[in-house]
Amino acid sequence: MFRSKRLITTFLCITLVLVSIFNGNLLYASRPELKIAGQFGLVYAPLMIAEKLQIFQKHGLTPIWKEYGSGAAVRESLISGDADVGFMGIPPFLIGWDKGCDWKVSMGFVVVPVGLVTNDPRIKSLKDFKPADKIAVPSPGSVQHILLSMAAKKELGNPTALDQNLIALPHPDAAASLISKRGIVAHFTTPPYLFEELEQSGFHLVTDDVRAFGTRFSFNVGVVTSKFHNRRSVHYRAFVNAIEESMAWINQNTKKAAELLAPEFKLSPEKTYKYMTWPGMEYTTRALGLMGFAKFMKEAGYIKKVPADVKEIIWENVKL
């Protein structure tokens, strides 16, 4: 009796394990769930609007949101298979691609102004940073870090000239430090922190994205693994369409979008609207600046190879 009970239990366990394995593989293609990894902020307005208006559901997808604190965490969740699509800056994407991650860009995701703000009137250009002056960026290898590197190369002749000044701080902490003038003198940042910091008296831009990079570029890109793209092509299309619909809606109904999102950002609708329409903000799925970043990062040694053709790093639908 006892023995047969144990046998049955064992059998059940094995069946369960096997079923779950096959299930994962067989059902992977047909499940409508879409695991989306991103961060929080103005940049993610298209995703937030898509959630509010149930746009993914309209396209037959069940979105599962995963919010992370840094681009690296988003990237890790894609690598480990926790997410199907992830939003990150071009540099973190390229570092992953360089290291052999099997993924490509599925869309550009918002062009935003990025700027290096200082609280020190003495600092007019990168030359004025002394060795003890700390410059905050969200993390090493982030868009902001690479932009600083580009600016350092342009103005000081050496991409790593300011690496000793770097400090990695999340945006809210860095903004608080900069405003209280404690610890850091400059912060390479994005909206809304960029706008709020620039409103402080005496704070000013040292350099920005256009000066450092030369042109505007996609601040974030939607990264999709080959596994998801190839095996769930229907869902992949649906995902791209959903984001495009969401962006189109924002562009046509920006005021309404600002009203919907204001409580999320704990800002007034007016301020949200102002930030969303700030010169330099553009909600577009065009992927801008991919090759520019790749070439610079190879030159500066952050990655070891450059795509021979941009097609190596984008899926077929991407508009450049």
Partner: peptide, 22 residues
């Protein structure tokens, strides 16, 4: 957590930095 500054980081910073470059 906050990564220290580039020039004067210890082992935590080392790991932190290496993580971001995969």
């Amino acid at each position: 957590v906050f990564g220290a500054s580039g020039g004067e980081g210890g082992l935590g910073w080392f790991i932190y930095k290496k993580r971001f470059f995969l």
